[in-house]
Design a protein around this nucleic acid. Structure first.
Lengths: 193, 193
DNA sequence: ACCTGAACACCGTTCAAGT
DNA sequence: ACCTGAACACCGTTCAAGT
C-alpha cells in the first residue's frame, strides 16, 4: 500500500482549526469570533472543536503558541542589529496581533490554561531581554527590573500606539545603557543607594 | 408641602446601579458580572438597566468615572510625599481595581464609549505625570515620553504584580531624574541626536 | 417618567448518536 | 477515532405594555 498517504490526518484538521482561529482572532478579535465561526472556516461543526480542544481558551493558547514561535524565529534572525532596532521590529511585527495582548490579560483571569501560558510567556521574554541588556553592558542589580520595564512598555505600546519619534524616545529612555558603544556620555559608576 | 422630599430619586437609583456594578466588577470581573446580577443587587429588573444606561459598557464607564474621581482626590492629598512614594500609593490603591485595566483595554476595542473614556484617561494621566516630572527637574524633550513610560509600567504592574523591591527598582529606573534634589550626579546637557 | 414580562438572537459547551 | 444534530443554560438587549 502507498506509504505517502499522510499518516496523521488528525493533526492536520487540528492545524486547520488553529489557522482559522488565528486569522479570525486577528481580524475580529477573540470576543467577536464565535466558536461556530472558527468551525465554519475550518470546514467542521462547532461541537467538533471540542473533540480537538477542551474549550475556546485552549484554541487561543494554540494560536498564541504558534504566533510566539514564529515571532521568536523572526527575532533570532536580527542578531546583527542593535537592540533598540530589534525592539522596534518586535513592535511592528506584533502590531496586528496586538489584540492578543489584551485578550490574554483578560482571559488569564478566567482561564487557568491562559494564565499558565501568560506566566510562561513572561518568563521567556524576561530571560531573553535580561540577557540582551547584560550583553549591552547593563549594570547588574537592576537588569531584571529594566527588562520588565521594557516588556511592559512594549506590551502597552501595542494597544497604545504613539507616533514614531515618541515611541523611539520611550525605548531610548529604557535603554540608557546604550547598545551602540560609539557614545560619549557614560555614567556607569553611579551607585544605587 | 414638604420640600425635603428628595427632588431627584432618579439619580439615586442610577447611583445604586453604579454602586452595585462597582462591587460586582471588582469581585467577579466584568465578564462574569451579568447585567441581570447588577440589576438584582440594585433591586431592579435586568431591562431596567437599559432605561438608565445605553448598555453594559456605559455602566462600566460610569464605574470608571467614579473610581477615577476618588483615586484622583486621594492622589491630591499626597502633595507632600516624594513622587516615587505617590506612585507606589497609586499602585497599592488600584491593586484591587486592577481587573478594570484589562477590561478597559479589551472593551475599548469593541465599544466607542469605552474607547473615548480610555483616551481621555490617558490624556489626563499623561498631563499630570508630565507636570510631576517637570517639577521634579526632568529635562524637557523627553518628559512626555518618560511620563508615558511610567503610566504604561504602572498599568502593567497592576496585572503583573512583582515583589516589593523589584517594583521599587522598576519605578526608580523610570525616575532617573530624581524627585529629591539632594543628589549628586546630573547630566542635563545631554542632547538628543 | 419609570419599570416590567416576555421574547430575541446569540453564545460556549455537552451529550447521545452516528460512522 | 472522528464528527454531527439537537439540546442546554446563559448572555446582552429590545419592545410592547403597564403605572
Amino acid at each position: 500500500m502507498p506509504r505517502n498517504r499522510r499518516p496523521r490526518d488528525a493533526d492536520e484538521k487540528r492545524e486547520e482549526i488553529v489557522a482559522a482561529a488565528q486569522t479570525l482572532f486577528r481580524d475580529l478579535g477573540y470576543d467577536k469570533t464565535s466558536v461556530a465561526r472558527i468551525a465554519d472556516n475550518a470546514g467542521v461543526t462547532a461541537n467538533t472543536i471540542y473533540w480537538y480542544f477542551k474549550g475556546k481558551d485552549e484554541v487561543l493558547v494554540a494560536v498564541l503558541d504558534k504566533d510566539l514561535a514564529t515571532a521568536l524565529t523572526g527575532y533570532e534572525e536580527l542578531k546583527g542589529l542593535p537592540l533598540i532596532e530589534r525592539l522596534r521590529w518586535v513592535l511592528r511585527r506584533l502590531r496586528d496581533t496586538r489584540m492578543l495582548v489584551d485578550t490574554v490579560h483578560a482571559r488569564a483571569r478566567l482561564s487557568p490554561t491562559v494564565a499558565a501560558w501568560h506566566d510562561q510567556f513572561h518568563a521567556t521574554t524576561d530571560r531573553i531581554l535580561a540577557d540582551e541588556l547584560r550583553t549591552a553592558g547593563a549594570i547588574e542589580p537592576t537588569v531584571a527590573a529594566a527588562a520588565k520595564n521594557i516588556t511592559f512598555v512594549i506590551e502597552a505600546l501595542l494597544s497604545h500606539p504613539q507616533d514614531d519619534t515618541t515611541e523611539l524616545t520611550m525605548l531610548e529612555l529604557l535603554l540608557q545603557f546604550r547598545d551602540t558603544p560609539d557614545d560619549e556620555v557614560r555614567h556607569s559608576d553611579r551607585q544605587p543607594h
